[in-house]
Amino acid sequence: MSIINPKDALLDVRHLQVYFPIKRGLMKRVVGHVHAVEDVSFTVRPREVFALVGESGCGKSTTGSAVLRLIEPTGGEVYFGGENLSALTEEQVRLKRRDMQFIFQNPYASLNPRMNVWKLLSEPLKVHFDLSAGELRERVEEMLSRIGMTPDQLERYPHQFSGGQKQRISIARALITHPSFVVADEPVSALDVSIQAQILNLMMELQQEMELSLVFISHDLNVVRHISNRVGVMYLGSLMETGDTEELYRHPAHPYTQALLSAVPSHDPLHKSQHIMLEGDVPNPANPPSGCPFHTRCGRCTEECRKHKPALREIAPDHLVACHHVE
């Protein structure tokens, strides 16, 4: 199903599935499941930025966490550098984390308030490397200068920094072990506009310098267009469309992608966006609709859509769409 030879991919996600049990009552009986991620497959090549976009509750963050096994998937496989992560023990995965890291959305919450910058940055190194005190200091200071901070800030605690600085520290903490693969979950959405650009630039620079593969999770379509090489659009736990970023933004094929892209407000008051209005709301993932997950809101819905869930099909080189109506 992947277009590229899986051997070229650094990350190969196959039929990933994450269901969360819904428990009720005194005995905590399982009464149903939230279908957070449903049969998601994609690949990430070395030094590539792959973006997962979608609206809240579409399963993009869960996918990111499940790929790194921070959440246990209920089905499917994740191959990282040719190795099946799903088959590893917890301890083996833990050692792998040196090479695959996660950047969190909210820097205000993801840094332990009782640890100063030195502890925050040296901790990952201590876990994965056996370094002398001097080497440790050197690598921490090198990373610190890389994110535009100075050694005199090492003694400070997270609450003494602004949001942008905190996110710089989070990024440094994730990248200090020199991983080859990073999942960044909405890394700038908690920040002000003028700070977002600073952080995005830093991430892009580091991504190129360190030759990182990046899965970039975001709801901000402008940011995604700027930062990513390829995009996957998610809706209600399923991938609806994937492809090269420019190609997908210029020629969105799936009706949902079209609506999503048209909803972005334009920055030109003389040429307001022609919105394709979607009626209603996203269905409840605990009780997903039959057939195509988007059929309840789709203008092109037919009988076929209500009955059968469309699979991802290639409509142009490296451009895959899950829709019955796209040729």
Binding site: L68, L70, L95, Q101, Q105, S110, N112, S170
Partner: peptide, 26 residues
């Protein structure tokens, strides 16, 4: 349930380390 415990896991810390270094002080 905080993000910084999830963060500690994503860094690759052992469960016991997380318990003593991150949970206990808080």
């Amino acid at each position: 349930s905080t993000d910084y415990i999830a963060n500690a896991r994503s860094i690759g810390l052992k469960k016991m380390t997380i318990l003593f270094k991150h949970v206990t002080p808080n």
